[in-house]
């Protein structure tokens, strides 16, 4: 075969116009025929830019998996879905959230002890003669008190119970309003000085509309003093 014939054969092989038998023959010769191989490689380089004329085609998502499977490779770059319990980000997030929550709670614990302590003051109102407890007052802060009946006090039908309080240094008792026997009440103290230790609370028996004078006039039914809860 002349160099000219060799070049023609190589050119037609690379161009793709050889028939099946001739192609196979050239491919077998390429294994050991260095001059033919050189001629073919020269043609490959010459014509390679023409591959640009073919529009790219997006591969299906399965093609890479197929290649990997055929090669016996395990997911490279294309990792299988990670089960939720093995998601590092999930556990990092939860650990971060937990740490944050514990810091917030710890700071609340240190800066707002009053909010944690449900009761700052307690008053037990007892009957003056029998000392029988009739009501309990709870205050979790010094602006609001809870009046809790321990039983249903018996009072005459034409009378009413009036609730009073007086601080140690006050001029006189201040009315907190009428209270029905057995009634549970939440009473704001925002108009009064803050609740203080030893502050007096009492119930007096008054007319159906309360004391006409604005000061206790009837007999004391229950009385007690505020005690600060440690």
């Amino acid at each position: 075969m002349t160099p000219e014939e060799l070049n023609d054969l190589a050119g037609e092989y690379v161009l793709g116009t050889l028939a099946a038998e001739q192609r196979l023959h050239v491919q077998q010769r390429l294994e050991h025929d260095a001059p033919l191989r050189a001629a073919v490689e020269a043609w490959e380089q010459r014509l390679l830019p023409l591959t640009e004329l073919a529009e790219p085609v997006a591969p299906s998502p399965y093609l890479w998996r197929r290649i990997e499977r055929s090669l016996g490779h395990h997911a490279v770059g294309d990792t299988p879905p990670v089960p939720w319990w093995n998601l590092l980000a999930l556990w990092r997030g939860l650990a971060g959230a937990g740490l944050l929550a514990s810091l917030v709670l710890a700071s609340l614990l240190l800066t707002r002890p009053a909010a944690i302590n449900p009761t700052a003051y307690v008053v037990v109102l007892t009957a003056p003669q029998s000392q029988a407890p009739g009501w309990v007052i709870q205050a979790s802060n010094d602006q609001q008190i809870q009046l809790i009946p321990l039983g249903v006090m018996q009072i005459p039908a034409d009378k009413a119970l009036e609730f009073w309080t007086k601080g140690d240094d006050w001029q006189g008792p201040v009315s907190l309003g009428l209270v029905k026997p057995g009634q549970s009440l939440s009473i704001p103290l925002d108009k009064l000085p803050p609740l203080a230790p030893n502050q007096l609370f009492e119930m007096t028996l008054e007319g159906p509309n309360g004391s006409p004078t604005g000061k206790p006039t009837g007999p004391i039914q229950a009385i007690g003093r505020a005690v600060k809860v440690i």
Binding site: A54, P56, V57, P59, L63, W64, H73, V76, G77
Partner: peptide, 15 residues
């Protein structure tokens, strides 16, 4: 091989 695939698969498939 994965990088080559990402680089040229669409063009090779086009060819």
């Amino acid at each position: 091989l994965r990088q080559l695939y990402e680089q040229d698969c669409a063009r090779l498939l086009g060819v």
